[in-house]
Design a binder for these strands. Structure first.
Length: 555
RNA sequence: GCCCCGGUAGCUCAGUGGAUAGAGCAGGAGACUUCUAAGCUCAAGGCCGUAGGUUCGAAUCCUACCCGGGGUACCA
């Protein structure tokens, strides 16, 4: 309906004032109306005519429409109007617009590294990335969720070095006794050790660099039998197994994992082909000069002749294209690699301009946890993802006297998703779970209440004609429900799921107010009210599903 | 130095050109005891980092500066 009204206003501006303009309809403070537009001010700016006169003239047209009940001209040239009750009732239960229909979108997120710890930052991007993938799917896109991880590179060599120290040499048989469950933490500790040694001990640094080369070679030669290879493949398997378990736990999945070892070859080939065109040699390395593009220079192939992350990322971009022929490629990472990615994308633009044009890089902040979550110094002062989940579970159990991992998970997800993507996130498990207000459990509980009414009504009601008009509080609820489609569209256009959170919270609040003072079952207005509760619970459920927050029928 | 991100109520955040800047938490007051109270109502709380500028209109755009975080050649 919004679309129709916009179109009509645009046509009217064309007819009356001979200008081409795209009208914006805003949802203002409720007392002003259901919609407001500053169109007259925009028209006035272009034509030099009096905005109030323009407003009056456009208002006349709106007044004639059956879906509009009241139109007012206000302030310096706003038009405010109310929808008719019928128009509102007709627009309940509108699903998301399918404006991504027929498009393929690759969404890359989470990106944990094997051989390192799966930390709270990975949990965050997993939740946010999943929500973005979901809203794109709801808009009709075919979405591929992909995950990029460094199974080769300096950090792997650091871990391998410490593993070798711990085993007293390259003795894979000593590892087989270790349970897969404790393996990942053991590796993460080893990484922290290796990293320290790399920085503090020049001899260790030398050995780590040498190991780095050996690990690349191991891939090139498809070595599975040497002692180092046996250690490598076994520990690598631990990591990937741990990732799968984790994604299962938070209810997400990936269509494809791209280990760096699989993108390095293609990246190297393409970078080498473009030496002299895009890249150049400098101090024994192959670099991309960023300064001409107002960026900084980065090394793509180091002087050991090994690919850096940059080259593997170029390989990844090309692989994704080969695999999916996407219309859009979305990459979600921390903002610490913003400038890095700018350089990589600029280099990609020189090689494959079309791919760079289709790529969007979304960056988010750091998660800083408080409220009883401790950093692990053994892992290098890092908070593990599972520590956050278990802290939330504990806080919920304590606050509500019963354990429910769906509530705890919903609380964590909502706490992450409700904030606009970009700035750092301060996460407090106590607040997200045990406290009331704008939280995941509040929304889950709101759904439970609606569900319980609907369930009860199934047994008691007979079909009845609906009331033709709405009472005040019914109207507020109905109006809020009908905003859903616009909100989801906005979230999809901006790739910002937090808009949905804000909306769902306001919706639940509106419902709770209504519910507090109005009977539904055994009330003369039962039929219309049940219709509203039905539409409300549908929208709430749909919204929570877009965020991948568990929807419960009982709590 | 240069580049990027952030700075809104005691705390955590919405609001990114429109009307009197909104929520939650914490602290204060209250109603009702129900279709699930993890709820509802009311009051209190603001130099929107600072100073200029653009505009009919600025938390929002521009410029400079201050504070916090990040990046800046062989890490990811």
């Amino acid at each position: 309906m919004v679309q129709e009204l916009k179109k009509l206003l645009a046509a009217e501006c064309q007819r009356q004032f001979d200008i081409d303009i795209e009208p914006q309809l805003e949802i203002p403070d409720r007392k002003f109306g259901d919609y407001a537009t500053n169109l007259p001010l925009q028209v006035a700016a272009k034509t030099g005519k009096d905005p109030k006169a323009i407003a009056e003239s456009l208002a006349k047209v709106l007044k004639k429409l059956p879906q509009i009940s009241e139109v007012k001209v206000a302030g310096p040239g706003f038009i405010n109007f109310f929808l008719s009750d019928k128009a509102i009732l007709d627009s309940l239960e509108q699903g998301p617009l399918l404006h991504y229909k027929g498009q393929t979108v690759v969404v890359e997120y989470s990106d944990p590294n094997p051989f390192k710890v799966l930390h709270v930052g990975h949990l965050y991007t997993s939740v946010v990335g999943d929500a973005i993938a979901k809203i794109l799917e709801a808009a009709g896109a075919k979405v591929a969720r992909v995950n990029f991880g460094g199974d080769v590179g300096l950090h792997v060599a650091k871990t391998m070095w410490a593993v070798r120290q711990r085993l007293g040499g390259e003795y894979p048989e000593k590892l087989t006794k270790m349970a897969e469950k404790t393996g990942p933490d053991w590796l993460a500790e080893a990484y922290a050790e290796g990293n320290r040694a790399y920085e503090e001990d020049t001899k260790a640094k030398e050995q780590i660099r040498e190991l780095n080369e050996r690990i690349y070679t191991l891939h090139d030669e498809k070595d599975e039998d040497s002692n180092l290879a046996k250690i490598y493949w076994l520990t690598r398997k631990w990591s990937y197994k741990c990732f799968e378990t984790f994604y299962g736990m938070i209810g997400t999945h990936f269509d494809r994992f791209y280990p760096e070892s699989e993108t390095a070859g293609l990246g190297l080939k393409v970078v080498r082909e473009n030496i002299g065109k895009v890249f150049e040699e400098s101090e024994g390395a192959i670099i991309f000069k960023g300064e001409v593009h107002n960026m900084h220079t980065r090394v793509f192939i180091n002087s050991q002749n090994l690919p850096t992350y940059e080259t593997k990322d170029i390989g990844l971009a090309l692989k994704k294209w080969q695999d999916y022929h996407y219309d859009r490629s979305i990459i979600i990472t921390g903002n610490d690699i913003y400038e890095y990615m700018q350089v990589v994308l600029k280099a990609l633009e020189q090689i494959e301009p079309e791919l760079a044009k289709k790529t969007v890089h979304i960056t988010h902040g750091l998660v800083k946890a408080t409220g009883g979550i401790k950093m692990s110094s053994r892992l290098g002062n890092i908070i593990r993802a599972e520590d956050v989940l278990s802290a939330a579970d504990k806080a919920n159990t304590k606050a509500n006297k019963q354990q429910n991992s769906d509530v705890a998970l919903g609380a964590v997800k909502y706490a992450f998703l409700k904030q606009r993507i970009g700035a750092d996130i301060i996460f407090n498990p106590d607040e997200s779970v045990s406290l009331q207000g704008n939280s995941g459990p509040y929304l889950q509980y709101a759904y439970v209440r609606a569900h319980s009414i609907l369930k009860k009504s199934n047994n008691t009601t007979k079909p009845h004609p609906l009331a033709a008009s709405l009472e005040n509080e019914e109207r507020s609820l109905a109006r809020k429900i009908s905003e859903y489609q616009e909100v989801v569209t906005k979230a999809t256009d901006e790739l910002m799921p937090h808009h949905i959170c804000t909306y769902l919270y306001e919706l639940a609040q509106t419902f709770n107010r209504f519910y507090e003072t109005n009977r539904i079952i055994d009330d003369p207005r039962q039929p219309i009210r049940l219709k509203l509760v039905g539409a409300y619970s549908k929208v709430l459920k749909n919204g929570l599903e877009l965020l991948n927050i568990p929807v419960l029928e009982r709590m």
